[in-house]
């Protein structure tokens, strides 16, 4: 079966007055129907830039994008404006950390959902409003009929997050892009929204790319994970395997440094020294080398391809991939 999404050698560079930012470097991955991929990594590693490339949401004038982004076989990077707007919100839809990015503050939530449905499907206002109501109900917004006429700012944080999910899913997209949609929420609300997303995904048979910096969240939602560092995917594979037996020293370091229950409180945390590099040049060697305990001089030459044992791979020349 063909993957729903195929990203091949994606490079995204932002041109600025003070030089360029090499935000995404040779990123490739694919996504099967119904599958959830977690893009995991620390802030600034290129997760959001990768995700936005799938809908071509970057500022046109200063962004240089190379590579291929195939959605159902069509290259998003080559689409004409009309095809692009037909695709956005219909085939591929997105939810954000900040729901006010998705909503226009001057229109009611119900009208905004209805408008999106009317734009993509040839149906009238009444029917579209009915769909909006169904969706609000589906994301478990209490007294949904009353909330149709609420403005975004009149809702609480968790409710607004659910309303945004209703908006994103109203046209039953094939792929949902979720950019840290639960990061700003309280723990008790985060878990409501995560479980809701998982359930809706199953019902609609969608694929999902879920961006997060939280290992626990990745484990909860994803089938597969791709770990990013300094603009590259450095390791990918089934989430259970990658996160229980990481191959890449960065993934190992990240998991070790993340505080989890049952840690010995009398022992120092195994922190990774230093900080991620600035992305002001194209890094062809291993970007983790300055922080890596296993680094050798070979790690400073341009990295060869990936080290793999299907279905996993990693971008580390010293990783032992034999014992999966």
């Amino acid at each position: 079966m063909n993957p729903v999404v195929e990203v091949k050698n994606l490079n995204v560079t932002f041109k600025g007055e003070e030089g360029s930012i090499f935000a995404v470097n040779n990123v490739s991955f694919d996504l099967a129907a119904g599958e959830t991929l977690a893009l995991l990594g620390e802030s600034g590693c290129g997760k959001s830039v990768t995700l936005k490339s799938l809908m071509r949401l970057h500022p046109m004038h200063k962004t240089q994008i190379e590579g291929q982004v195939l959605v159902e076989g069509q290259d998003v990077l080559k689409m004409k404006p009309k095809a692009l707007s037909a695709m956005r919100g219909k085939t591929v839809s997105m939810v954000f950390q900040e729901p006010m990015l998705a909503f226009d503050p001057v229109f009611t939530v119900g009208d905004q959902i209805a408008e999106s449905v009317m734009r993509h499907e040839r149906i009238g206002y009444k029917e579209a409003r009915q769909r909006a109501l169904e969706m609000l109900d589906r994301v478990r917004i209490p007294s949904a009929a009353k909330r149709l006429d609420a403005y975004p700012h009149e809702m609480s944080g968790g409710m607004r997050q659910r309303a945004m999910i209703a908006l994103a899913l109203a046209c039953k997209p094939r792929v949902l892009l979720a950019d840290e949609p639960t990061t700003a929420l309280d723990a008790t609300v985060q878990i409501q929204v995560l479980l809701l997303l998982k359930e809706l995904q199953r019902e609609l048979g969608m694929s999902m790319i879920f961006v997060t910096h939280d290992v626990g969240v990745a484990i909860e939602v994803a089938d597969r994970t791709a770990v990013m560092y300094a603009g590259r995917i450095i390791e990918q594979g089934p989430v259970q395997e990658v996160l229980s037996r990481p191959w890449h020293p960065y993934t190992q370091g990240l998991l070790g440094a993340t505080v989890h229950p049952g840690m010995d409180r009398n022992q120092a945390l195994p922190a990774i020294p230093g900080a991620p590099p600035q992305l002001i040049r194209r890094i062809d060697e291993c970007a983790f080398a300055p922080r890596c305990a296993q680094a050798s001089s070979r790690c400073l030459s341009p990295l060869p391809g990936v080290n793999t044992l299907a279905p996993r791979w990693t971008r580390c020349i010293h990783a032992d991939v034999s014992q999966a």
Binding site: P142, I219, Q240, P261
Partner: peptide, 25 residues
């Protein structure tokens, strides 16, 4: 109890039974 329970497990393979609170604070 609900607050502590709502933290996703950090270890793969441990599926959890969440106590899901209704509504927001």
């Amino acid at each position: 109890r609900a607050l502590l329970n709502s933290v996703p497990a950090q270890t793969p393979g441990q599926s959890k039974n969440y106590i899901v609170l209704e509504g927001d604070p």
